[in-house]
Design a protein around this nucleic acid. Structure first.
Lengths: 202, 202
DNA sequence: CCAACATTTTGCCTAAAAGGCATCTTTGCT
DNA sequence: AGCAAAGATGCCTTTTAGGCAAAATGTTGG
């Protein structure tokens, strides 16, 4: 027995809450959503919401974390003889690919949704929650790097943080760039520069 | 007239509040401090506290931000003909040097204080606030790098994020290492690896 | 299938935080 | 001195945070 009914329901509730939080925040704006609304949307009580998340921001950040944890997962899944930085490239690419699948599940990201996301991201509380969430992801990444390379000490941690840095830069540039640039190009460029030791261009 | 009375008082109040917040949180634990206490400690009303900071966590994070902003400042201050990564090393070293001056102002960091800091840092809300604060520092850093190198696009941003990564790793390792390791060594090692493009060791 | 057990959900309650608004003070300037 | 701008304060309402115990729901051994 891999997973009982209890476990499954819990996971489903968690996802439902997180999803509802994101959707409502994008639609009506972060500040105009009460956690009560989120709970109602997911069909549980307000108090139950609090059993799952410490705050509205955490609920929203949860989706992003889960997605980011895939980077570490993918890093572990890739062939052990693949060079580390090649594996890292692939893993981050997967992360962004998952991000593009949009909300409904399959729909392509439409402009209204994207605008809502951008606005939502300006919320300080949310930035904090997401940053904290990424810190957790960093732990997983460092562990994955340590396992894959058999290294200890500063190295795994450093690589993990730098992966996070690359992810952040690519994401920021992608959100800002108009006309939009290809994520694959941005990511490739960022990692090329990192692998070269970030010499001043030209 | 560089700065009027009004400006100076404001700055002083801000510092007093931030300082009081840190001290009280370290002494009695983050959760046992009401913002009312902080305001009282700084000699202003509760409502005024709120005019300065959005939350308790922000007040505490503020000190760290100010200190981190010095990295960008120092980066701008250093001779223009100094190689970028040498300047970065010096700038981050300064950051940590400022951190070691301790609380009272000159006292060396005693164990009780350090333990209090560590405990305080485990607070999720605080981690979020600090992470958000570092994001602001990242903006400054990127601008400083852009000015110094005359580069645009991904590069300044990337360097800024990587500086943040190095700072985070060194700080984490320093807080964890027992017996304590020299910050200069840790930082040197981290930056060496980054400049070499983070090849897998050995 | 049932009964004892474990875990989760929920309602209730209090403390604290968040932030709008009007008013009073202080500072800056002429 | 006197007026205008900016800041500090008090008061108020809404929302969040989270402890606690009771009810509901899954889990397991007989």
């Amino acid at each position: 027995m891999a997973e009982g009914l209890r476990e499954r329901k819990k996971r489903e509730t968690r996802i439902a809450l997180s999803w509802a939080a994101v959707r409502l925040a994008v639609e009506r704006g972060y500040g105009n959503v009460r956690i009560e609304d989120i709970a109602a949307e997911a069909g549980v009580s307000l108090r139950t919401f609090r059993n799952y998340f410490d705050s509205k921001a955490d609920a929203i950040a949860a989706r992003e974390v889960e997605r980011s944890l895939r980077i570490a997962e993918e890093l572990r899944a890739r062939p052990a003889d693949e060079p580390l930085w090649v594996a890292i490239r692939k893993a981050i690419e997967l992360h962004f690919a998952l991000g593009e699948e949009g909300h409904g599940g399959q729909r392509p990201p439409d402009d209204k949704w994207l605008a809502g996301i951008r606005l939502m991201m300006t919320e300080p509380a949310l930035q904090g929650a997401i940053a904290r969430a990424y810190a957790r992801v960093g732990d997983e990444l460092a562990a994955a790097v340590a396992d894959r390379t058999g290294t200890t000490g500063l190295y795994p941690r450093l690589v993990a943080e730098v992966i996070g840095a690359a992810r952040a830069v690519v994401m920021a540039e992608w959100m800002r760039a108009d006309p939009p640039r290809s994520i694959a190009d941005l990511l490739g460029s960022a990692l090329d520069q990192i692998e070269a030791g970030l010499p001043v261009p030209e």
